[in-house]
Structures are given as structure tokens and as C-alpha cells.
Design a protein around this nucleic acid. Structure first.
Lengths: 238, 238
DNA sequence: AGCAGTTTCGATGCGTCCTTGAAACTTCCC
DNA sequence: GGGAAGTTTCAAGGACGCATCGAAACTGCT
């Protein structure tokens, strides 16, 4: 992990008892488990995903997963640890680059939806689970609240600058972020909401449309929207 | 149930073995179960709700629930049977009353959000569950698709009439309805997303804001929005 | 060769929940 | 009063999934 050897690492023999399932492993077992679990959680929900299944798809036996994670929720914790971080980082970057609030808001929404399409999760179920174990998911909620405050501030700035119509910034932030989370409900790479014949819209289309709708609904001069869209796409290519 | 006696029905002695829990029952056991389950499903999810808990809150023992419903999902089926029906009925009424497409769209969104705030459910979990048993939830999805098509048509009309900007009606319908379902993610009468300090916005505020944002984002002349809002509120008082 | 460290396995205990079946207690009607 | 029908309870049967434990199978070093 320290020097060189970034490509074509020769499959150095792993220490420890060999697996019963002898598929060659592509990445670190821990990462593999997280990737597999992430997908399954989104597809079937946390409650609906068994440790057996996670193990099976990771090329392990059920009990071996416990070598890497204390329990199922430890896996979830790891997944949730990065979800909001990514968006918060993007936000920081967008704010650092500057530009009018409306543009920054547009960019953030678009990026948020793209991120959620790539790593979907059911905010609702997360919420229910974390209600049971507040401490364990404290960080997730803390970052989620930070995101809310940031969007709130963005809206506030936009109003002050005369770019956006006069709305309640807090209510707007809550609604905008909830809408982002909703998008992935029906636009899922796999499985869910398959009942909805969603015609396979690409994440890019979905993200752009969501941003258009949201910012379009807040902008005083709708004519500016096209310019915002163009600039956002240029600055944040997929 | 046939004639008169709509108020102050004397608690006519029920036939059958008396309950261990001797609270007087306010409504038909079946209805009581549905009401209780509906609340619990929204609060903890279907998977997270036990038949024991449903029974307990309905004043019954666990196994007695099976006298009324074959299994847990039969209760869910009953709940989902009405969820979309209500909105579809409202839509039919709105369309019958006529008026410009933008107004009808505004009214529908507002009513939809109000309905979802009153009877929240996790569309995501429903989707996962129904994927496992397609037939049982066929009606729900059928009606959900009808709703999608109706909104699509509304948007199409609005564009044709020159009221709305030129968007993909299908993508718009999917997004708008998903957004409605999102609102209840954070605006819950009880429990969920409590981590989000949502300042107790009233359903009316939430619904109006959602409709403002959505229709505002589609309307060519944003100046018309205030009038639409006023008229919608008059025609559909809470 | 042998010991230490690492990774995995198989078996098992435990708890939880769903579901069923037979019996108990009630009112209703003949 | 007695049988029929309706409603509920108690008790028990399964199924299933989480989590733990001790042992097994490997590498690497001495």
C-alpha cells in the first residue's frame, strides 16, 4: 500500500486459511464486503439483507464476515460514513470556486443527485435504524445536518442577492435535499421501483432535470436557468 | 351499518369470547388493526413491525390478528389498496372541475403531499416487498402507474397550452411524484427523521411549498404562481 | 521442523418472530 | 336450555438469521 505497484499487482499468496470458495479476490476482503453490502442494502434494505448473502457474494462463509465487522450495523456504519462526506466535500469545492449563489446551488443539487444515483440508500430506513442506536450513527446525522445548514445558507445568500424568490430558507433546504434523496427511489441501477417503467433515464438526465426543476422554481429570472445549466455541466463533468 | 345510528352508538355487546385486554373498542377490529398497522409501518417499517406489536396496540393477543388477516402482508395490501385510490379520486375531481393545466397540476401536487403527510408510507420499502410478491401488490402498482400517466398528461397539456416550459413530460411526472413521496421522509407526524430538527412545519406549509417549487419550476410566467396558489387553497381547503 | 500469526471454516446456541391448532368464552336464536 | 356461530386466547411448532467459539489451514520467520 505504500510504494508503487499500482497496477497488475501479482496475486501474492494470502496468508491464512484458504477459502472454500476459490474465486480470485479482486480487492481487500473488507472493501469487497462493503461494496457488496452497499449494493444489497440499497436493493433489499438493511433488514432484508442477511449476513449469509453478504458473505456468499463476497466469496466467504457467513461467520467469516465477523472477522472484519463486529455486526451487520458496523458495515452500515462504514457505508454511511462516506455518503455525506463526499457531498460535503463537493460543496466545499463549489463554494471555494465561488460564483453566484444560484449557480452554486444548481451545482450542488446536480452533484448530490448524481452521487445518490451512484450510491443509493434508503434514507428512510436509515432513519429508522438510527433511531434505535443513536450513538452509532451520530456522525451520519451530524453531517446530514451540516448539509442542510449549508443549503439553507446558500438559499439565504441567493435571496439576499436578489437572485432567488423570497422563500423560507430552512423549509427550502429540507425540501430540496429530500427531493434529491427521492430521485434515486425510482431511478435505481438495479431492482427497486422496477414496477414504474422508468424508461432507463440516465443519472445525468435525472440530475440535470432535478436541478432545473429546483433552481427553476426558486430563480427570479427563469431566463438565467439555461446559462446556469451549461456552466454547471462544464465545471462538473460527469 | 345500514340505517341511522351514526352517533353515540350504544356499545352493543359483541359476540365471541371477550378480550383479555378489556379496553372498550372504538371501531371495528379490522379497521383498528389497519389503523394501528398503518401507523407502525410508517414509523418502523413493515419489516420492523411485529404482529405482536400490532396486536398489542389493537387490544388483542398476537394470534388473534390472524383471525382478520391471513398474514402481515395482507394488512399491508389493505393499506396500499387505498393510498393511491384517494389521490386518483382527487385527481378525477380536479380534472372534472376543469381550469388550466397548471392550476390542476398545482392542486394535484398539493393534495398529494397532504395525503402523504396524513398517511405516510415508505415507497422504497413497499417497492422492495412487492418485488418479492408481484401478484399481491399488482393493484397498488397499477394505480401508481395510472397516477404517473395522469401527471404526465397534465404536464403535456400544460406545455401544449404554452403555460409550461418544454420538458420531457414523462421524466417530469416521475420526478414530481417522487418528490411528493420524499416530503414525508422528513415531515413525519411521529418519529422518523427526528434527527433533522424539522421545526415542526405544518403539512399545509409543506404541501404548499412543494407545489410552489414544482409548478414554479415549470411555469413560463412565474408571476402566475401566486394566483394559482390562492385559487388552489380556495378550492381545496384543508 | 516448528512456532507464531493470519484468515477462514463448520457447528452450534440463542433469540425472535410468524403461523397454526385446539380449546375457551361469548351472544344469538330456536 | 341447548346448539350454532362468532371471537379470542393459550400453547406450541417451525423457520430463520445473528452472533460466538474452537479448530483448521495456510504463510512466513527462525
Amino acid at each position: 500500500m505504500e510504494a508503487g505497484a499500482t497496477h497488475e499487482e501479482p496475486p501474492r499468496p494470502r496468508t491464512g486459511r484458504p477459502r472454500a470458495d476459490d474465486r480470485p479476490l479482486e480487492r481487500e476482503p473488507r472493501e469487497e464486503i462493503v461494496a457488496v453490502a452497499s449494493r444489497l442494502f440499497a436493493e433489499r434494505g438493511v433488514a432484508g439483507t442477511t449476513m449469509s448473502e453478504i458473505a456468499r457474494r463476497s466469496g466467504l462463509r457467513q461467520s467469516s464476515v465477523y472477522y472484519y465487522f463486529r455486526d451487520k450495523e458496523a458495515i452500515l456504519e462504514e457505508i454511511l460514513g462516506s455518503v455525506n462526506r463526499v457531498v460535503l466535500d463537493q460543496l466545499a469545492r463549489v463554494n471555494a470556486e465561488g460564483g453566484p449563489p444560484a449557480l452554486r446551488l444548481y451545482r450542488l443539487i446536480r452533484l448530490d443527485v448524481l452521487q445518490l444515483c451512484a450510491f443509493p440508500y434508503d434514507i428512510n430506513e436509515i432513519s429508522r435504524l438510527s433511531a434505535l442506536q443513536e450513538e452509532r450513527f451520530a456522525r451520519f446525522w451530524q453531517e446530514r445536518r451540516a448539509l442542510n445548514r449549508a443549503v439553507e445558507e446558500l438559499v439565504r445568500e441567493g435571496i439576499a442577492a436578489g437572485e432567488l424568490v423570497d422563500v423560507d430558507p430552512r423549509l427550502a433546504a429540507l425540501t430540496l435535499l429530500a427531493n434529491d434523496e427521492a430521485t434515486q427511489n425510482w431511478h435505481r441501477p438495479v431492482g427497486a421501483l422496477g414496477q414504474l417503467e422508468d424508461d432507463g433515464y440516465e443519472p445525468e438526465q435525472v440530475a440535470t432535470f432535478s436541478a432545473d426543476l429546483a433552481v427553476g422554481g426558486l430563480l427570479r429570472e427563469r431566463a438565467r436557468l439555461a446559462a446556469l445549466r451549461t456552466e454547471a455541466r462544464e465545471r462538473d463533468p460527469a
